[in-house]
Computed example of a mutant assay.
Amino acid sequence: MNPKLRTHLLFLWAIVLVPILAWAQPPRGPLVVSPQVNADKSVTFRYLAPQAKAVELSAQFEKAPVAMTKDAQGVWSVTVGPVKPDIYPYSFRVNGITVMDPANVAFFPNERFKASLVDVPGDTPLIHAMRDVPHGSINYEYYPSMEGTTGSLVVYTPPGYDTNPKQKYPVYYLISGTTDTEETFFKVGKTNLILDNLIAEGKAKPMIIVMPYGNIAARIAEQKAGAKPADPTGRDNAEAVKRANDFATDLVSNVIPYVEKSYRAMPGRDNRAIGGFSRGGGQTLRTAFSHMDKFAWVCAYSSYLSPEEMERSYPSIASNPANTNKQLKLLWVSVGSDDFLYKGTVEFMDYLKAKQVNFKSLITDGGHTWMNVKTYVAATTPLLFQSQTPRP
């Protein structure tokens, strides 16, 4: 082909293609930075929505939604605070519809709506902050579970795990609440960073933490092309108890064997702890009390069992308190004073006290929040395995 003709044809193609490529690109609006944590601990939130009629901020540190204002570019914004340093979920309400913050990659893992997260740092680093200390690792694992399904785990291994292949470690099985996933203790609870910091300070024993998904029924339905079943309407009705027992079976029969085969986990009840938040706390208590041969350390965060269920399903716990106290190296119960489970949790504590079952407790301010959960994790993990010395 004539070189001049080839050049001419390429030029014509460029004229044709440039408008097509330009049309194919999504329109670009102004750069939106959100959230923006300011030096005075106030936080600015922004959301691009030129056609919206109303946008509000809904945040866990605010008692009610906060109206946002729109600028000439169609960016809605509001500055609130100062905000007490911590990690908080938030979202926007756009024309009455709740949405995540598209400018923010940090989100709250959940079976339903996934809120965005804002981290307001303290002037002194908080216990969950990223610090200049040795860090452990986070691993995603899949194991053979109930009814032929595949279960999922998030596993934390402590600093030094990969460099000292002869060292074995105790294991803390840590369970999230209703609608949470196996990622929530990691991404919202920052359990890995809490342990990194406590271990670096010499306050906690190096341990493996296993975070399973607590909704066995939902996973079975999903993997067998069924509809996700609704959550039980009560916390201690027959359906709730059945699902908790299914979880216990999966944990004891499938998760623990998988972990002890795949990781350098110390076997035996003295080297296993179990804990959980909300529904995960109920699963914790039911699993532990029905498998006293498996766990010596038990932590219930914002959760309880009713005296009626204790008498009906776990009578030996209270009928022989001396034996229970000998078996359990730690029974921990904690709750916030504004938690909707406060009354039931305090009733559970009173029951244990009346039956002379030893336990440690912590009642904090605040409600049923992951801010409190981080406090409970930081308070309990230094107590775990203190009589145990990891061995080669």
Rank of each mutant, 00 (worst) to 15 (best):
V154D: 10
L193W: 09
G96M: 04
T149Y: 05
F185S: 04
K168L: 02
A115E: 08
K114V: 09
Y156P: 06
V155C: 07
V171S: 07
E182F: 13
D132S: 13
P102G: 06
N95I: 15
Y142V: 05
A103K: 11
G160S: 02
Y90N: 12
D180G: 11
N95P: 15
S176T: 08
P125C: 10
S91T: 01
I194V: 15
I127L: 11
T191A: 14
F107A: 08
R112G: 14
V120M: 08
F107W: 13
I127H: 04
N104F: 10
E183D: 11
Y140A: 05
F108R: 06
L195C: 03
G177H: 09
M100F: 04
G148F: 03
I97K: 15
Y90R: 12
Y143V: 02
K84S: 15
M146F: 03
Y161L: 04
T163L: 01
L126G: 13
Y173S: 07
Y140N: 04
L198T: 03
L193D: 10
D119W: 10
P158A: 00
P159G: 01
P165F: 02
P165R: 05
L195R: 01
T184P: 03
G151I: 04
G96H: 00
I199H: 11
V171L: 04
P85F: 08
V94I: 15
T149D: 06
R93P: 01
D101W: 13
S176A: 14
G136N: 01
K84N: 12
Y142Q: 12
P165Q: 07
F113T: 10
E183R: 12
K168I: 01
S137D: 10
T178R: 14
T184Q: 12
L126S: 08
T191I: 14
P158Y: 01
V133A: 10
L174Y: 10
G160E: 00
M146N: 02
D86N: 15
N164I: 00
P121E: 03
V99Q: 15
N192D: 15
P158F: 00
Y88E: 01
E182M: 06
G189I: 03
H128F: 13
V154I: 06
L193S: 11
S152P: 00
G122N: 08
Y173V: 06
I175H: 07
T163R: 08
V154P: 00
F113S: 08
N104S: 13
G96P: 01
P85M: 09
G122R: 09
A129C: 05
T98K: 14
T98D: 02
Y90K: 11
D132A: 13
P165G: 02
Y169H: 02
M100T: 13
E141G: 00
